[in-house]
Write a protein that binds this DNA or RNA. Structure first.
Lengths: 333, 333
DNA sequence: TTGTCAATATGAAACGTTTCATCACGCTGC
DNA sequence: GCAGCGTGATGAAACGTTTCATATTGACAA
């Protein structure tokens, strides 16, 4: 029904091979002929059939994007940027959710691989089964590492460090930290960075030993709320005056918990999140947080997947502290 | 490199046609042969090449999902459900964002169509250019209509009606409504539903004429905040005691605005949103809202795209009022 | 004139399916 | 013994590309 390369060839009076060569911008084609072919392409509105090409090349121009849950604002943001950049280069993005389930992830990636994608951008689950599976395709991992594959991520240690530093500089000494699941490296790194800054502080300020309360949960809203409630349910004298979290979602849950308990942020409690999702600047009060440069991560991941040479093993981007309204000096200071 | 249907045929000592027939579960194949073929398939780990099949059939099993912005929680939720259901049936989902730009939408859909998808699930932009373009594929429209195509949406009029009804029954008489852009039908319907309930009330309660203040903006957080500020910046005597919005995002923005101005929700101001995005139950206070059954919408849309017979022209689902913490009786009552 | 070479066009094969017209075979009924 | 038939397998064509070995042409040198 649609015109094929044969129709073009016939109408232009050349062979299909020649048409293919002008399509491929191959240099070895006579100027006159090139013009004539291009004219006929225009005239009959020929559009190359992607399936024919893909079959021949045994490879499509589709990019697989595999995330735990597209509903998570961080991954939605990632997806948006990946899709924008990819479509600007004529690639399409196939979306798959793993729901943090290694089996589902394996299943999803297997069917994805069957489609012979140009590459895979993957946010792997914790105990991923796919490390050897994906070696068949160019794969770049985002946010979380997967052994043997390029990783684009933020320097999580530094992010945690920044959060701690900010709270210390505001004068907070009784600190809390709401961590992500210890099964993920990301979460461990952020916590480590946070604790390391505190340890350094204790060392330089002898006598002022700051030992934070740490609680561990998931990255989601609910976990932030529950853990926050637990942590805040202490007398004002021992309760932390500031809490850092491993994600903005946790921070927003924590904000809720604080509100429910009659604590005012930032007057009674300072909070610093992590990620800088769009919502962070819309909650009440606006969330001070550690921004991940998602657009840059998307760009790098795509470059790693489509670019001419392999990405280095690890690409760590620098997070930056975004000061908004959820932090202040401690009330008793 | 991967085994092909030829390898299977050769190894099983049959023709490729026969293998294809057992793959297609065609009945006209001898039991013994079927078993042998299945065994060899298993033995050499044959997986049909999707590209070969697609080329032959001139059709893929990919479903195109085109939304304005995957970052919008409502569309993210939709995408999640569509993807889950689709992958359960062996289909994959190609994601495209239009950023509410008719040109971008056209561009996206054109390249999508070039991939010969099994169907298209589309949330069209306001002045969509693609109504004739997409007739080439089975298309179901979600949330917003597009002339000549099946639509799956919530009964927006009824949703607006429910919001108004709830606020009236709580005793509110000075009402505000923050609408979406009048360029979208969705927004008009919700507003109409809201106003119609108020009109009916005025009629039955002669003397109590309720005429709401209406402000119009976009569906996003920012619009809710700005318009909210404007509406609340009135003396307590004339300022609405309750405001309904056309989206949860607006409602959350409004919540912010109220907070910034020192108004307490729901004591000083009642708010009811629309959509019931995940965040609605996590803001402070939890948002009373009109829920859209997104999972059901995704199911219907997919059925319309993959099912054996066309969906009816319009499929209107019933929204339901979810009572949470952002509404109360007016303070002066 | 012939041979060589560069430049460029051609034709056919190949990618992995599905489908359809054809064919082989065994049975039945006469 | 054979025509007719039903059951099922076969082989080849077709889908729309790309690529590569080969063919054609013209120019130029010997």
């Amino acid at each position: 029904m649609n015109p094929t390369i044969k129709d073009v060839a016939q109408r232009a009076g050349v062979s299909v091979g020649t048409v293919s060569r002008v399509l491929a911008k191959n240099k070895t084609v006579n100027e006159d002929i090139r013009l004539k072919v291009e004219a006929t392409i225009e005239a009959i509105g020929y559009r190359p059939n992607i399936l024919g090409r893909s079959l021949r090349l045994a490879k499509t121009d589709i990019i697989g994007l595999v995330v735990p849950d597209i509903t998570n604002p961080f991954f939605a943001e990632l997806a948006k940027h990946v899709e924008m950049l990819a479509s600007a280069e004529g690639h399409s993005v196939l979306l798959a959710n793993t729901h943090d389930d290694p089996e589902a992830e394996k299943q999803q990636i297997e069917t994805l691989l069957g489609r012979l994608p140009a590459g895979l951008i993957l946010v792997p689950v914790s105990n991923s089964l796919v490390d050897t599976l994906v070696t068949r395709t160019r794969t770049v991992t985002v946010d979380r590492p997967l052994s043997g594959h390029a990783l684009v991520a933020v320097d999580n240690r530094h992010g945690g460090y920044l959060a701690a530093d900010h709270l210390l500089s505001l004068g907070h000494r009784r600190l809390g930290y709401i961590s992500g699941p210890s099964t993920t490296e990301v979460s461990g790194e952020r916590r480590e960075g946070f604790l390391s800054r505190l340890a350094a502080f204790s060392e330089t300020h002898s006598g002022e030993h700051v030992a934070p309360q740490v609680l561990e949960g998931h990255f989601d809203y609910r976990s932030g709320e529950e853990l926050g409630k637990k942590m805040l349910m202490q007398p004002a004298g021992t309760r932390p005056t500031a809490i850092a979290t491993a994600s903005d979602q946790q921070a927003i849950g924590l904000l809720r918990a604080a509100g429910d308990m009659g604590l005012r942020v930032p007057h009674d409690l300072s909070i610093v999140g992590f990620d800088d999702i769009p919502l962070a600047s819309l909650v009440q009060p606006r969330l001070t947080t550690i921004r991940q440069p998602i657009d840059e991560m998307a760009r790098l991941a795509l470059k790693g997947v489509l670019g001419s040479h392999r990405l280095e093993e690890e690409y760590k981007l620098q997070p930056v502290l975004i000061e908004r309204g959820s932090c202040a000096h401690p009330a008793n200071a």
